[in-house]
């Protein structure tokens, strides 16, 4: 019997110190049946990529409220690619201006960007449908 579970790393890169949002999303993902690896604050892109590798995750969710998303997201994505994990779903959440979000997606750094006000169900449904398909 195969019992594959979806594993997702929820990480906070960089210097911002607010993780309430990340925790709320982590909790929602748990309730949607995901295994959520949560690593806490102040992670470097290197730590995130290596954790994603060791935990063999299907998706990475980055929570960024600091404004450094245009630097951090491409960096994490590049390191994941270097690890042979370029196919891992990359979801970003936080205070991301629309233009930046579009740019991250168009340049292949992120698969989806969620901003404040997004219903939790949308986030869990999106990740679930992307990975199970």
């Amino acid at each position: 019997m195969n019992s594959k579970k979806v594993r997702i790393l929820v990480a906070k890169p960089g210097l911002d110190g607010h993780d309430r949002g990340a925790r709320v999303v982590a909790r929602a993902l748990r309730d949607a049946g995901f295994e959520v690896i949560y690593t806490g604050l102040h992670q470097t892109p290197e730590q995130i990529a290596e954790t994603a590798l060791q935990e063999d995750v299907d998706a990475v969710g980055l929570s960024i409220l600091s404004g450094a998303h245009m630097t951090l997201v491409p960096r994490v994505k590049k390191l994941l690619r270097d690890n042979g994990m370029g196919d891992v779903l990359m979801v970003v959440g936080g205070i991301i201006p629309e233009d930046d979000g579009r740019e991250l997606i168009n340049n292949g750094h992120a698969d989806q960007v969620f901003t404040p006000g997004e219903p939790l169900d949308n986030i869990t449904d999106y990740i679930g449908s992307k990975i199970r398909s």
């Binding site: 748990r30 295994e35 690896i37 949560y38 690593t39 992670q43 290197e46 290596e50 954790t51």
Partner: peptide, 26 residues
């Protein structure tokens, strides 16, 4: 109930995340 989980033990161990001779799995 949901089959989901929060795997949070790593939070305390992330100093070792880049040590090639330590492998952590939740």
């Amino acid at each position: 109930f949901s089959g989901g989980a929060i795997l949070g033990d790593r939070i305390r161990m992330q100093d070792h995340a880049l040590d090639q001779d330590i492998f952590i799995r939740s």
